[in-house]
Design a binder for these strands. Sequence first.
DNA 1: GCCCATTTGTACGTATGTATG
DNA 2: GCATACATACGTACAAATGGG
Lengths: 84, 84
Amino acid sequence: MGQITDGPVPKYAQLASILRRRIESGALAPGDPIPSETALEGEFGLARGTIRKAVAMLREEGVIVTTRGKGSYVADQNESRAGE
Amino acid sequence: MGQITDGPVPKYAQLASILRRRIESGALAPGDPIPSETALEGEFGLARGTIRKAVAMLREEGVIVTTRGKGSYVADQNESRAGE
DNA sequence: GCCCATTTGTACGTATGTATG
DNA sequence: GCATACATACGTACAAATGGG
């Protein structure tokens, strides 16, 4: 479950989908921290650059908010979402 | 001597080799402190992240022992070494 | 106990090089 | 050429532990 597979869909897009589902399902609630890039590296066996691309997608969607030196957190529902 | 060079060998691996030699040669004896990360930055002109990778290698080899807030020290010879 | 400097630990930001399809 | 993916490397920020005064 939640495994990244080789195929036509880029790994970073797959990871973004997995994290997005965790949030939409409520497994990760607003204010909750997203696993760190290092943790996600270990969990999915991806390079950090790939992790960062996935996280950047969610950030652009307004799903998460990132603070340098601290981490990424699930955004509040009424937070502004780009491109909506 | 002991300089880090550009090339196929990663800088963190080069630094790990240099420190390992200092220990194996006796220049650093069991119980002796390893220079702090800041000191190694200055001595070798490397970023802290690179220093930390080298030190992590030696720690995994069981060559040194690290305590947060104190520093890293040359391990005793009969200290357990992973993967031996 | 409290401050403070030092040191390690953790985390994100950015850039570059290599390899592959 | 371009996007993907990995690895290396440097920079910056925040956090926690240690020890001295």
